[in-house]
Amino acid sequence: MLSTPPAAFSRKIVVESLSHAFDIDGRSVPVLTDVSLEVAQGEFLAIVGPSGCGKSTLLNIVSGLFPPTTGRVTVDGVPVEGINPRIGYMFARDALLPWRTSLANVAFGPELAGEPADRREARARDLLRLTGLAGFEGSYPSQLSQGMRQRVSLARTLARNPDILLMDEPFGALDAQTKLVLEEEFLRIWERDRKTVIFVTHDLFEAIAMADRVAVFSARPGRIKSLVALDLPRPRSVTAGRFGPRFQDLYDRLWDDLRYEVVAAG
């Protein structure tokens, strides 16, 4: 059931026979086995899989946080060696610097790059407006709701203008309603400039509503079980598309694959 990305797009991220094992108490615990994957320029790839299947590890390796045990990752044809700030990475936990205001948090990446204060602040202001936080520039994270903090986190991820977004369950810690709103807004933002996205989630609805393709990972050690192209039209609405027959078909098919792995993962 493997599908290749459309030939018209260039290959942005290439993962070649990647395996990874962690050393836990002197034992080698494999988390990923022989994962090969191509993500096209401007493609939105979702990865679903049971807990502990190595989804986050894959993102960490692509981001350059640590090298894989074997195999390799290239971005734009260049092997990933160390962190590349042009790759934006967003977590489920907001990881905002608590002593910085929203504005200063968003401006943090450009600040690290040595961008002058007036430019980075103007950009941070724009991004906060884009993520619906105009008026909260001066608030500290402790004064914001979880949904708002995740909006700041999204704005911060966008502030270095990355071409690739790695998102590790970015809305996973939010309540159901806030999650829907943020998904909708993220999709709107993404559809403007179509950055390449790898989006890890537990939520099959979320994956189908947003992605171009969905990769289902097996239980640990994770490998790609199936890779399904979604032929749902764009622009999409996270909520409106959810009850169509096509959506239901895709959901059933992916859930069949996923359920087996979730049960296997215990």
Binding site: I83, P85, Y89, A95, L97, F108, G109, L112, A113
Partner: peptide
């Protein structure tokens, strides 16, 4: 220091001194 803050700062391009 919260390790998440260290990781996210590194990902945003912070060097050791920063």
């Amino acid at each position: 220091v919260d390790q998440d803050l260290i990781i996210i700062s590194r990902l945003l391009g912070a060097n050791r001194r920063q």
